[in-house]
């Protein structure tokens, strides 16, 4: 079926995105000599530990050195440091794609593991919580307010939201977050300045949930402020455009009740581009969350990324960049599939 084939093509493109990202990252790392340095550091670390272990048992310094050098050579060969970086590419790509992501320098999970895989597993759900809530609320606002003001174009409310939309485009999300903290946490002192729970967090379910809510209000509000602006305006524009189409008039001529006209002939038709945008926004928010989590100290992937930058943890940055790309691509793929169901006009 042509549909299936098209989806496959899209899927392939998105897969290419991941591959290209990996390639790009590794080429950059190799060409700048970064990966050589990193591997060297890694090897030296391991050699040092090995040596310390041996020192107990082997007294003769020359013998010790010989064994250690042997070990080092083995490592060098294992990591491929003896070859030029382009030859290490396939191995690197394979490792990353099988999620063998290595360890972080300076970060730990709650249980103390420094495996990047564990870190991501711990942090990702928190980011998702923040993002999906914010996107959900923004989408809701966008759809309800957007359709409402589409029925009164040119009115004061309409113009207010047009301006609001332009304004939220120019407003950096992270600065808004900072402002919120300044106002609500510093001056008014009614909301906490950051973090996900109080320290120590409450143990019972309901107070714990409320505590979470309490901490989530500001970051979610910040994100909603940024997202809803453009979505309200987008919905409004799409609905307005659709409402002017002939078939809407035909629907009215058929004597269909107004709310049916609204649902089936206006919203249903205007939905595909709006939904596309919302899902794109969802995917994009993943990245945007890096900034928001940093500002609010929300323990998600974004904050982890920030830590990686500050502590110059290259391994973590590479792993996170890859994971982000992967998530983004998955979200886009879901979008493609959804879109096919929404809009029968779609043909490639």
């Amino acid at each position: 079926m042509r549909l299936g084939r098209n989806l496959l093509v899209r899927g392939f493109t998105l897969l290419m995105v991941v591959v290209v990202t990996l390639l790009l990252m590794n080429v950059v790392l190799g060409a700048t000599g970064f990966s050589d340095r990193m591997l060297n550091a890694l090897i030296n670390d391991q050699v040092r530990i090995y040596r310390q272990g041996l020192v107990q048992t082997i007294q003769d310094p020359t013998e010790l050195q010989r064994i250690v050098n042997n070990y080092k050579d083995v490592l060098i060969e294992a990591y491929g440091l003896d070859k030029p970086w382009p030859m290490r590419l396939p191995q690197m790509i394979w490792r990353v794609m099988t999620f063998d992501l290595g360890k972080a320098k300076n970060a730990q999970t709650f249980k103390g593991s420094t495996e990047i895989y564990d870190l991501i597993a711990e942090r990702l759900p928190k980011s998702i919580l923040l993002i999906t809530t914010s996107v959900g609320i923004s989408a809701l606002l966008g759809l309800t307010i957007g359709t409402k003001i589409a029925t009164m174009p040119g009115s004061k409310i309409d113009r207010f939201f047009s301006n609001y939309s332009a304004f939220s485009y120019a407003l950096p999300t992270w600065w808004t977050g900072i402002l919120f903290i300044l106002i609500f946490a510093q001056y008014l002192r009614i909301l906490p300045p950051g973090g996900m729970y109080s320290a120590p967090p409450p143990t019972e379910a309901i107070p714990r949930f409320l505590d979470l809510l309490f901490h989530a209000i500001l970051p979610i509000s910040t994100l909603v402020l940024a997202l809803s602006g453009s979505w309200i305006y987008l919905t409004r524009t799409m609905v307005l455009n659709t409402a002017q189409q002939d078939f809407v008039n035909v629907a009215r001529a058929k004597g269909l009740p107004e709310n049916l006209v609204m649902r089936r002939y206006i919203i249903r038709v205007a939905a595909p581009p709006i939904i596309t945008n919302i899902i794109l926004g969802l995917a994009g928010s993943l990245s945007g969350a890096i900034l928001t989590e940093t500002v609010f100290g929300w323990p998600g992937m974004g904050l982890l990324y920030w830590n990686a930058i500050v502590t110059v943890d290259e391994g973590l940055i590479i792993a996170l960049t890859f994971v982000y790309t992967l998530i983004y691509v998955i979200a886009r793929m879901i979008l493609e599939v959804l879109y096919v169901f929404l809009d029968p006009r779609v043909e490639y």
Binding site: T13, A283, S287, I317, R332
Partner: peptide, 10 residues
């Protein structure tokens, strides 16, 4: 289709 910020950062 690349996610902008993470790759930008990288």
């Amino acid at each position: 289709n690349l996610p902008q910020l993470p790759i930008l950062i990288f």
